[in-house]
Computed example of a mutant assay.
Amino acid sequence: MERAKDVQTSLAPEFPSLVKNMLRSHVALGFWLGLPKKFCDLHLPKHNTMVVLEDESGQVWEAKYLAEKVGLSGGWRGFSIAHKLVEGDVVIFQLVSHLKFKVYIIRSKCSDEVDCALGLLKLEAHTKKLDTGDVDAFERETESLELLLEGNPDGNIRKNCSEISVHCDKDSEDIRPEVLDGIRLSDSVIPLEEVKSIADFNILANGLIINSELPKYLQGKYYDLCCSQNAFLHEHLIDGLNCKLVAGIISETINIADAIRASKITTPVDDFATWDKTLKAFEGLGMKVGFLRARLDGLIDIASESKSYENVRVERDNAKEELGVLEAKLSGVKEKMMRLNTEIEALRVNRQKLELKFKKVATASW
């Protein structure tokens, strides 16, 4: 943190910057990066948007800035993984334009990182210090993080919100637990058989309780699905999936389960195929959805059997329609025959008259 502060003070003062100590939730669990609310209120839009993260080498990544949640979500995971960020690293974000951050990484295990970073900056050093209020907030954040680390010699910051808040300075807007929108770290995993009601039902992903990522009614439906199988359906999802992705998988699983229950024998087979393809993808990620796919297989078999009736009925309707066309055509032909018969009779009489006239003309005296 001291080396990060040295780098920060060397940055151009006209561009605002902030420093973030990388916690486990930033780089391993959930990949959610909360930003200081005061900084966001002053310098970032009031609506969700994409921001650009440019590293020291000039490579850029896009990340989703969520205004209400005050932090970076989609895209941050890719940046973190690409730069091999680990717990204890410190990252400096310098807002160099409206929606673009220049990002400097201070490695926790690199003693000369500050020299490397300063060399890459290629900026003139300046002696102007940060505003006193910002320095105080920065000092408080450093002290809070040091207290957390002292109580966690192994670098494990997995504590619940109440434990973290003991170490946080309540007067600082920049210091708050790395828990947003109700997502919180879990102390332990409760087996489903010990869950007696929806009130005790927690959805865990990467050690985080993500109940808040799903509406209450979906939580209830998912609880019923899990109880029906006596297992957490998401329990074996591959490690490291983004919390919002896990919530999306659960939500779509519920939607497909509802769609299966609401389906009819006349439901297009393509719909069944789409649901099965989606569930197969979830199953590949570790979601326990085999029972839903089995239900779909049974419905598809029944629907296929009923398809014979439908095919014959459609064929009969087509034949009936074709017959109607032919009957209409036959009626037209009959009308044409009647008209032609009438014309022929009239022409026959006229021809007889013409023959007599022709003979008279031909045999007349010269």
Rank of each mutant, 00 (worst) to 15 (best):
H126E: 02
K128W: 09
L123P: 00
K109E: 11
S111H: 07
D115C: 00
L95K: 10
H126Q: 13
R107G: 04
Q94I: 02
L120N: 15
S97Y: 10
D115Q: 10
C116F: 05
H98A: 14
L95F: 04
Y104W: 14
K100W: 03
H126I: 00
H126P: 01
S111N: 08
L123E: 12
L99I: 13
E124M: 06
A125G: 07
A117P: 01
K128D: 15
F101Q: 03
A125C: 08
A125D: 01
Q94N: 15
F101P: 05
S111M: 11
L99P: 06
C110N: 07
L95N: 07
D115A: 11
F101N: 04
I105H: 06
T127R: 11
K109M: 05
V114D: 06
L123S: 09
L118Y: 00
V103F: 09
I105R: 07
L121M: 10
Y104P: 03
V103Q: 04
S108G: 09
T127G: 13
V96W: 09
H98Y: 14
E113K: 00
R107E: 11
L95A: 06
S108P: 01
T127M: 11
L99E: 14
K100C: 08
L123M: 10
L121N: 03
V103N: 04
S111D: 10
V114A: 06
V114H: 00
D112W: 05
K102N: 14
E124V: 02
V96N: 08
L118K: 13
K102P: 03
T127C: 10
V103T: 08
Y104V: 13
S97I: 08
L95V: 08
I105Q: 00
L123N: 01
K102G: 11
Y104C: 13
